[in-house]
Design a protein around this nucleic acid. Structure first.
Lengths: 148, 148
DNA sequence: GCAAAGTACTTGCATATGAAAGCGATTCGC
DNA sequence: GCGAATCGCTTTCATATGCAAGTACTTTGC
């Protein structure tokens, strides 16, 4: 049923953009970070060894490597992330969250969760949310480097 | 259940971005337009009288009015949209799709639908897709000026 | 009626981002 | 081993976008 799939894809994009737009305002006002900076910290926390190279981050965040370079620089300056070099490969410079970065992530994640639960607020049963979650999980690309 | 909502919101964002990223490549390669230009044309077609003012478009597309001005200019130049002034209010300049614009939308929508049906490809029953669709519909902001 | 406030659009400036080129470092082919 | 190709990162340039100021028009308050 192409038409239903089309409608669903359109709504998916619309809901995601609505949600991100609302989040963006609260994040910059309350936590002083952007949604992308939040997602960067979240990717770090969910990664093995809690660190990622810039190219890995770029792939996971659907942005270019240069964007990661420029996003990480100010975050490093204000102490949210640090860098770790690889003993074996001097080209690799891992981005790693500092304790301040993890604290910032924790606070931001609370805001995120608050808005997420408002988005799904009390409208559906757990069973419905589980089904929804499972469907979304199937739609995520197969690389496995996923946030949720 | 905050945790499940959080997971769902994260997955929602991720799936939407995956989908948009894939679409972006095919759109520019095959149709020579961006995803935002496609959405602009789609908003025009779904609007009453098939036309919208720049501020209306801006609100519906989550972008600023200046972005609409600058998006519409090249689309007007290549003949995808035109402008119509309002008899009553000389400030209003409606954006309206030309026949070429509607043709471009039709072709692009076919690409969109193809990818949408691949995203949901044969994994679920119509009943599940209907449920999914209904849940998304409830999450869309209440303005009613919606694409789907 | 007319000034003040509001509205629709455009433009200037600052920021964010991607593509491509550049630079080191590593790996591959031989 | 050594040159060539590849890889990770940074920088440069071009584009996209938002915000705020500017312009033209309309509505409101009196």
């Amino acid at each position: 049923m192409t038409d239903l799939c089309t409608t669903n894809a359109l709504r998916l994009i619309q809901v995601a953009e609505d949600f991100r737009a609302g989040l963006s305002g609260e994040f910059s006002a309350v936590h002083g970070i952007s949604v992308n900076e939040f997602l960067l910290l979240l990717h770090l926390e969910r990664a093995t060894a809690n660190r990622l190279s810039r190219v890995d981050l770029a792939k996971r965040m659907h942005v270019s490597a240069s964007t990661i370079t420029r996003m990480a620089a100010p975050m490093e300056k204000i102490g949210l992330v640090g860098r770790e070099v690889d003993d074996r490969d001097a080209r690799l410079v891992f981005v790693v969250a500092t304790s301040m970065g993890r604290e910032k992530l924790s606070q931001s994640l609370a805001t995120f969760s608050k808005r997420a639960s408002y988005l799904f607020s009390d409208r559906w049963e757990d069973e419905e949310l589980e089904k929804f979650s499972e469907m979304l999980r199937c739609m995520i690309g197969g690389t496995g480097d996923t946030l949720a």
